[in-house]
């Protein structure tokens, strides 16, 4: 019997099926996002229409409302400052730590590494109250710095974990070669290791950014009206006398998501695999 699997028609059909399956999958994953987007483009009346409206003239009044609220720009800037600082701090502290874990066989290395991970295993709520007390005692409560430190606590293990893997995979000979070429350990790190570990940095910073950007819990406890971040501000849509402001909530939700999506989209271009290929034989 002839085997038809390889025939061009079958292959076309196969490709078509794969695309259908992928499209369905993407729709499933994106459905909540699309729903939120839909809500944000409806008037208050349309939101509560029953049965739900599937076709309507989109309105941008919710976006106008949110963007003209007095506290939106401030919260946006707070979020930007806090998130960026947390990412940079995590990378600056985490990358050298990861390098040490990857290259120096110091005593207690595996224990320390494990200890670092334990921090990630704790439910964040468990450290929230102690953190609040500590920051209060230090006079840092309600400052942006306190939130930055809180986020760094959680993203640091992530950075160390990811970057350690990257550093370990880089051939030691590259560094040794640089030392022989006249580089100090530090120069070799900055000129050879860091450029090659770029995909690791990108991956780590995307994850850290999302952690910080979307956090509600720490920011809710550790900030005040002046220092509050976007997720905290968004919660206020729930609070008014007029009940839940769905339009405002979803519109601000879309606005909050946008910068992270844009950042991740452009950053992912740097996640090129095989950057190190050609260093050693291959």
């Amino acid at each position: 019997m002839a085997v038809v699997v390889g025939s061009p028609r079958m292959r076309k059909l196969e490709t078509a099926l794969i695309y259908v399956a992928l499209t369905v999958l993407v729709m499933v994953f994106l459905f909540p996002v699309l729903w939120v987007l839909g809500l944000s483009l409806k008037t208050r009346l349309q939101v509560f229409a029953s049965p739900p409206l599937y076709l309507w003239w989109p309105t941008i009044e919710n976006y106008v409302d949110v963007l003209t609220r007095s506290d939106f720009p401030r919260a946006f800037i707070n979020t930007l400052i806090v998130s960026t600082s947390a990412v940079l701090l995590s990378l600056c502290v985490g990358a050298p730590a990861a390098y040490a874990f990857a290259r120096f066989p110091f005593k207690g290395r595996s224990f320390l590494f494990f200890a670092l991970l334990v921090m990630r295993m704790l439910p964040p709520i468990a450290v929230l109250v102690p953190m609040y007390v500590i920051f209060s005692k230090l006079g840092l409560a309600t400052t942006r710095l306190s939130v930055v430190l809180a986020y760094t606590t959680f993203s640091l293990p992530l950075v160390v974990w990811i970057m350690r893997g990257y550093f370990e995979d880089l051939p030691v000979e590259l560094e040794e070669s640089a030392w022989i070429d006249g580089a100090t350990r530090f120069t070799a790190f900055t000129h050879i290791i860091l450029p090659m570990a770029r995909p690791g940095f990108v991956a780590a910073s995307i994850l850290c950014l999302q952690l910080a950007w979307n956090d509600f819990m720490f920011a809710a406890v550790l900030t005040n009206n002046d220092t509050q971040t976007l997720p905290v501000m968004m919660a206020s849509f729930n609070a008014g006398d007029s009940g839940m402001d769905w339009g405002g909530l979803t519109a601000s939700g879309m606005l909050v998501t946008l910068p992270v999506v844009i950042f991740s989209f452009f950053a992912q271009g740097h996640l090129v695999a095989g950057l190190s290929s050609g260093a050693v034989k291959g």
Partner: peptide, 20 residues
């Protein structure tokens, strides 16, 4: 004395070229 101060050059088995 550290490698960088020895004024030597070394060719490694896997060449160790800087890929970037």
């Amino acid at each position: 004395i550290t490698p960088r101060e020895r004024n030597i050059a070394m060719v490694f088995q896997n060449y160790a070229l800087y890929p970037h």
